[in-house]
Nucleic acid binder design. Structure first.
Length: 435
DNA sequence: GTAGGGTTAG
């Protein structure tokens, strides 16, 4: 809708003959991109008689804003007129010294699963500012290294760098994911008493998550209800997740009802409640939730896992048989199963949600992350870590199998679930099973 | 006229 005003101004610009001005043209590209009209932005860009750095940047930023990441990269390589730029080239050009670039690189490495590289970039950055510090703090947070988060945060304060809103989100999240309830509250309180920061919905969500994850559901609920601002979906979402983790169906149902009103199109809430009913053997109610999903036109995003091998990305869905090496993959899966069973492993069939009893255990073995693991064991050279990413949270059974596999095959396995990393080494996970 | 870091949930 807003673009209507922009179009009117665009018309006026044309009438007065300013459409070929490079400043005006770039601003129009930017305007269309920000109105989520990327095609119009592209047309504008194509029609510009000349373009400069800002025009190109406006296009790239526009792609990012519209979540067209691949196109952003393609466009960028077009600017350079060469193939993809590598981190090595960034260092050579000297751009690595730029704090914008280096903080982005910290984030990039962390999100690609390499915390050590992220740390190296941070150490090499000359004048880290609040964004650089927050980038490395978040990186450690996403990798479950809460000790480092706290250490870095304290170092940052000693260096005289003032934390901001986002820094505290990461610190609080680190506390919640490692059961540091008291410390979490201390940091939360320090926002107002020390740092002059007003907590926002994200901070409140972290605090509800902190209490909820620790199993203190009633306190979490009371906290959510006492928030001075109107609690948003993320606050109730955190509480619903805690109800699922700790099996509180009654509270879960109340919270889910709230969420269905606030965000009826979010499939996650339906799935959580449905799973809770199923796990409690209340299949009729579970079906009712599924029906509600259908009525509201909501569809569950299918779970999938992917793994990079030699510059190629392989994607697996549950029960996937589309890969050319499917036979070997399923054989490897069988092998993992036999070896794991020799340990004290017992299939956690409560995580097999939609299956008839006798198929439950077998079905667990075809979760997408296990398929990716089997493929990784077949293809990733010994000694190199197996890196898997998954778009959804994993189930308890997969988490257990990853631990066993790391020990049995003597492999480091790094798995990202949504946006947090678990590192499995010698039969243990970096999250120490608190997740 | 453009540009870096973030939470919960399947």
């Amino acid at each position: 809708m807003i673009v209507l005003h922009g179009e009117q101004v665009h018309c006026l610009i044309c009438k007065h003959g300013f459409e070929f001005d490079i400043f005006v043209g770039s601003a129009l590209v930017d305007m269309y991109a920000k109105c989520f009209e990327m095609r119009a932005a592209g047309r504008m860009f194509d029609e510009m008689p000349e373009r400069n750095l800002v025009s190109w940047n406006s296009m790239i930023v526009g792609f990012l804003l519209n979540k067209l990441y691949d196109q952003a990269v393609r466009f960028f390589t077009e600017v350079l007129g060469e193939t993809l730029i590598t981190p090595d080239q960034i260092i050579k050009t000297g751009f690595g010294m730029n704090t914008c670039v280096s903080s982005s690189m910290i984030t990039m490495y962390a999100k690609c699963g390499s915390l050590v590289d992220a740390q190296r970039v941070f150490q090499e950055s000359e004048y880290p500012n609040v964004v650089s510090w927050t980038a490395i703090i978040s990186a450690c947070q996403q990798h479950g290294c809460a000790n480092q988060v706290i250490e870095l945060f304290e170092n940052m304060l000693e260096e005289g760098i003032k934390p901001d809103y986002i820094t505290l989100v990461s610190v609080l999240s680190a506390c919640s994911h490692t059961g540091r309830v008291e410390e979490g509250f201390a940091y939360f309180n320090s926002m107002t008493t020390v740092h002059s920061l007003n907590p926002g919905p994200e901070h409140y969500a972290c605090m509800v998550d902190l209490l909820g994850r620790a199993g203190r559901l009633n306190e979490a609920k009371r906290f959510a209800e006492s928030i001075p601002i109107k609690p948003d979906a993320s606050v109730w979402g955190a509480l619903l997740g805690a109800c699922r983790n700790h099996g509180d169906l009654e509270m879960g149902r109340d919270v889910a009802d709230k969420l269905f009103e606030i965000e009826p199109n979010n499939p996650g809430n339906y799935v959580l409640l449905c799973n809770m009913y199923t796990r409690n053997g209340r299949l009729e109610e579970a079906n009712e939730v599924r029906r509600l999903m259908g009525v509201n036109g909501v569809r569950k995003e299918p779970g999938c896992s992917w793994i990079d091998v030699k510059n190629e990305t392989f994607v697996f869905t549950a029960h996937d048989r589309s890969h050319s090496r499917t036979k070997e993959i399923y054989e490897m899966l069988e092998k993992i199963k036999q070896l794991v069973k020799k340990k004290v492993y017992v299939a956690a069939t409560q995580f097999a949600i939609n299956n008839v009893e006798e198929y439950k255990e077998q079905s667990l073995w075809y979760h997408s992350e296990k398929l990716a693991l089997a493929f990784g064991l077949l293809t990733v050279p010994a000694g190199a870590p197996i890196r898997i990413k998954k778009n959804l949270r994993t189930c308890g059974d997969c988490h257990t199998v990853m631990k066993f596999a790391s020990e049995i095959f003597n492999r480091e396995i790094i798995v990202r679930y949504i946006n947090r990393f678990h590192q499995f080494v010698d039969g243990l996970c970096s999250c120490r099973d608190y997740w």
